[in-house]
């Protein structure tokens, strides 16, 4: 007797981008295809230092399952990853390390600041704590909460996916982007 096979019918496929299609071909803009591909295979690099890291572990766990959104593989080397997930307090002692990790990532790279500490220093308005990681590296998405619930972290990642999807291929060559990088003294 064969085992009963179950199919998950409750799936959502990414919609095909707009374009001109005929028999055996489809033409659309390169931006859209690349955005679609990037969006659904973001490789996160968890930079977890404290409490938010524990909530991030819960997000990766079975109940919340980050893998559903194409972020199955945690990479622990910055060279392979697309998204830097900074979860937890970053002290001034840690700031150069964080910056180093960011610099080691290849373009295009994105950053999510998870939790109040990473976003603004949170309740630790004290001399050893960096008041928000945006003082040393540019940030794309901020997730509020101390620590944020796993749902909030998932929401942050979905917001980032929107950004990635709609990002122009030329953005990273634009003068605005270069100016932003310059303001962080990143060449």
């Amino acid at each position: 007797m064969g085992r009963p096979v179950q199919y998950n019918t409750n799936m959502k496929l990414s919609p095909i981008p707009e374009g001109y299609s005929g028999e055996g071909f489809m033409a659309t803009s390169f931006d859209k295809v690349v955005g679609l591909a990037r969006k659904n295979s973001l490789w996160p690099l968890p930079f977890a230092t404290s409490c938010c890291g524990i909530e991030f572990m819960a997000t990766m766990g079975a109940n919340y399952d980050l893998a559903r959104f194409g972020s199955e593989r945690m990479g622990f080397t910055p060279r392979q990853c697309d998204v830097l997930l900074v979860a937890g307090t970053i002290a001034k002692k840690m700031a150069p390390v964080l910056r180093q990790v960011y610099l080691q990532m290849a373009e295009p790279r994105w950053v999510i600041a998870i939790g109040a500490c990473a976003s603004s220093g949170g309740i630790f308005d004290s001399y050893p704590v960096l008041q928000g990681i945006d003082q040393v590296i540019p940030v794309d998405v901020y997730v509020a909460g101390c620590p944020p619930r796993p749902e909030a972290i998932l929401d942050g990642i979905l917001k980032l996916q929107d950004l990635v999807h709609n990002e122009s291929l030329r953005r990273r060559n634009s003068p605005q982007y270069k100016e932003l990088m310059e303001s962080y003294a990143i060449q």
Partner: peptide, 30 residues
């Protein structure tokens, strides 16, 4: 060590007693 030193003891000197409780949360957050 000290990579996430956050000066709990200094902060605790500036917080009323009830506001110290959230600090203790973040000691051993497990």
């Amino acid at each position: 060590i000290g990579y996430i030193h956050r000066a709990f003891e200094k902060i605790a000197e500036r917080r009323p007693y009830y506001q110290v409780t959230p600090l203790t949360d973040r000691l051993n957050y497990c």
